[in-house]
Amino acid sequence: MHRELIVLGTASAVPTRHRNHNGYLLRWDGEGFLFDPGEGTQRQMLHAGVGAHDITWICVTHFHGDHCLGVPGVVQRIARDRVGHTVHAAYPASGETYWQRLRHASAFADTSVIKARPVSGEIMHLPAGPVTLTARPLSHPVASYGYRVDEPAGRRMLPSELSRRGVSGSLIGELQRQGTVTAPDGSTVHLADCSLPRPGQSAAFVMDTRLCDEVFALAEGVDMLVIESTFLSAESALATEYGHLTAAQAGKVAAECGVRRLVLAHFSERYAEADEQRFLDEAAAAFAGEIVVARDLMRIPVPKRET
Rank of each mutant, 00 (worst) to 15 (best):
111 T>E: 12
167 V>K: 03
14 V>Q: 15
169 G>H: 09
202 S>N: 11
156 R>D: 10
228 E>R: 07
100 Q>F: 03
265 A>T: 15
233 S>E: 15
34 L>H: 03
212 C>A: 12
75 V>P: 06
169 G>I: 03
177 R>L: 14
237 A>S: 11
253 V>A: 02
123 I>M: 14
18 H>Y: 10
306 E>Q: 13
203 A>Q: 00
146 G>R: 02
153 A>Y: 08
274 A>L: 08
113 V>D: 02
32 G>A: 07
270 R>F: 14
75 V>S: 00
207 M>Y: 07
274 A>T: 09
278 R>N: 08
31 E>M: 12
278 R>F: 09
189 V>I: 15
139 S>Q: 13
139 S>N: 13
167 V>H: 04
81 D>I: 04
133 L>P: 00
164 R>D: 14
96 E>I: 11
98 Y>D: 11
302 V>H: 05
117 R>W: 08
191 L>G: 00
47 H>T: 10
166 G>N: 11
95 G>V: 04
165 R>T: 01
23 G>Y: 06
125 H>G: 06
241 E>G: 07
251 G>H: 01
110 D>P: 05
295 R>D: 09
34 L>K: 05
119 V>M: 04
248 A>C: 04
80 R>L: 15
175 L>H: 10
14 V>S: 13
260 R>D: 07
74 V>H: 04
40 G>Y: 04
7 V>L: 05
279 F>G: 05
104 H>S: 14
25 L>Y: 00
92 P>D: 07
265 A>H: 06
27 R>Y: 01
237 A>M: 12
166 G>H: 06
289 G>E: 10
35 F>Q: 00
212 C>D: 13
12 S>L: 06
238 L>R: 15
236 S>M: 05
55 I>L: 00
181 V>E: 00
133 L>E: 01
298 M>C: 07
269 E>M: 09
299 R>Q: 11
14 V>Y: 08
136 R>I: 09
219 A>V: 07
295 R>G: 14
193 D>A: 12
206 V>F: 02
250 A>R: 05
265 A>G: 01
307 T>H: 12
180 T>I: 14
42 Q>A: 14
43 R>F: 12
93 A>I: 06
152 P>S: 10
96 E>W: 12
264 L>M: 07
88 H>T: 09
245 L>N: 01
281 D>Y: 05
135 A>K: 00
122 E>V: 08
180 T>H: 11
161 E>A: 04
168 S>D: 10
159 P>V: 02
135 A>N: 07
285 A>V: 10
